[in-house]
Design a protein around this nucleic acid. Sequence first.
DNA 1: GTGGTGTGTGTAACGCGTTACATATTATAT
DNA 2: ATATAATATGTAACGCGTTACACACACCAC
Lengths: 330, 330
Amino acid sequence: MATIKDVARLAEVSTATVSRVLNRNGYVHPETKVRVAKAIEQLNYRPNDVARSLFKGRSKMIALFVPDIMNPFFPELARAVEDMTRQHDYTFVLCNTDDDPDKEIAYVEALKQKSLDGIVIVSSTMSGDYIKNFEIPVIALDRILHPSLSSVTVNNRAGSRQAVDYLKEIGCERIAHIAGPEHASNAKQRLDGYLDAVKEEDWFKYSYVEYGEYHFEEAKEATKRLLEKHPEIDGLFVANDLMGVGALKAAQAMGIDVPGQLSIIAFDGITLGETTSPTLTTMAQPIYKIGARAADMLIRQIEQQERTKQTEEFTVELIERESTKRRDGS
Amino acid sequence: MATIKDVARLAEVSTATVSRVLNRNGYVHPETKVRVAKAIEQLNYRPNDVARSLFKGRSKMIALFVPDIMNPFFPELARAVEDMTRQHDYTFVLCNTDDDPDKEIAYVEALKQKSLDGIVIVSSTMSGDYIKNFEIPVIALDRILHPSLSSVTVNNRAGSRQAVDYLKEIGCERIAHIAGPEHASNAKQRLDGYLDAVKEEDWFKYSYVEYGEYHFEEAKEATKRLLEKHPEIDGLFVANDLMGVGALKAAQAMGIDVPGQLSIIAFDGITLGETTSPTLTTMAQPIYKIGARAADMLIRQIEQQERTKQTEEFTVELIERESTKRRDGS
DNA sequence: GTGGTGTGTGTAACGCGTTACATATTATAT
DNA sequence: ATATAATATGTAACGCGTTACACACACCAC
């Protein structure tokens, strides 16, 4: 690989001049510029980003931390962040944290050694003490991780309430909730939204809430427990689509017709919900948009050095599919 | 951030000695080692990987190129490669290529500037001329990209034949194929496996093969075309699971009962196939294993400097689910 | 005692761009 | 005409580890 010295020699200038041509700064005589450009061309020279990073202390790399890319909610988010990253000539690093704070911290430390410029993080588990001492920009995505961090999220609580109101509206009279993990801020908000909508109902009982772990299998079992305990349930709001599919499977396995006997609505709007039979009604997040926005916000913070905290909340949208059906008020 | 100089000053040694302690090479007096270790501890010193990379010309980063992480086949592969990457203290870069050769090349060039150590690539589109001039180790995964590259794949042809033989075995008498994109080597092999199994049959016609693009929607339409043209079809082998789900949807939309009237078997073994109704019978690849093996092979090539070409082929396995059913030979 | 080997440590060059600073020339202002 | 600013380019230090090489001393062999 040719270096800047080779270019300088060929163009008969100093490396400083070559650098000025490369970075379009400082004064360079037009003719000199042409000679340098020709030399660069001839040698097919590309500057060494590592040397640049060493000098600048910045690497033009950002990372996305997700619990597990195999969870179908995350690929679209990853895609969005990666697209934005590339558009700004950054390099995209992906880290699976398994919601394990030790792994998260190990990643952060390892990446700091590489002069990583910033992190978009989907996490609920990091300790506040650690977060306060981040030395690089961080944007929390999908879940609020700490009040001091910038974040991009959706209106989980209002959206959840809207989901439950929709179930009521189509005639459901006993509506239960399969909740996400208690430690995740968005799961908590969705639960709150559900409670907002049902706590005044005379039929409401706290045993209408079962917990799953944002996973397919756990949700299936939680749903089974719930429906065995409460066969009167005719509407189910599930904390996310992956769990919603689990709930659907559980109901079908018990011989319950969806949406005939039970309407199910979930949350997220991932593609998976379109491939089941019946397809899954959901409160769709603008997944790609929030990912892209988080990445954009991060890069802006990196490049403008402005560390002001920003929070942005997007709105979810009801998508009616086949897992919900209007009941005749016979 | 403390530097090696700070450590050297505090431990009252030269930076060379600190470096020797860090890298456990050269002679260092045990007592000196302790002093240095204490200084490192006290300053919470972490070596700057960028400076290391600059000197070594290697970055301890590898990349995975996939067409699109949103395609549900890739997250598991990505997870495998990332796990292996982390185990070896490398950093994992993810690139979505959209099967666009220009994007692929732009990525390779950009990453070379960062001293990227190697690439695991899922691609069918790169030009042979370019591939031959790669200056870094590359492992082709899932699809053979060029005869000169090491690769990790599965027995696509034999596995496909096995899939079709299975359909025959359960009593299907007219078996069609929804094929993947013609330019992808694995799609070609799967088609060949299908042809191996059916070309001697007296009922076989070339119009029993329709092409989709490894996408859900295209497969749905291809299946619709096929089944409208050939209502006698009672068995369908689909080139991958994502397309298989599309085929399932198309059949259901046409009022065809799966597996009652039509048995469907696909290929890949992704989780998506477990969430549909009926669940999808498939030839499952050991997805995680091939990803992990490719990453392992790559890192081995990087660290041992051995550029010998290696190829490895894993075996697919039939997983019977609900989309296929034995027909009574009435 | 002399040569050889093993141990322990420091000096300085190196990897490759970037930029502060110095110097020189030309253009503009007064 | 002289001061001042703008243009043009080079020199060298810098960022931070790594390592070739030099040097010093201990120990053993003959």
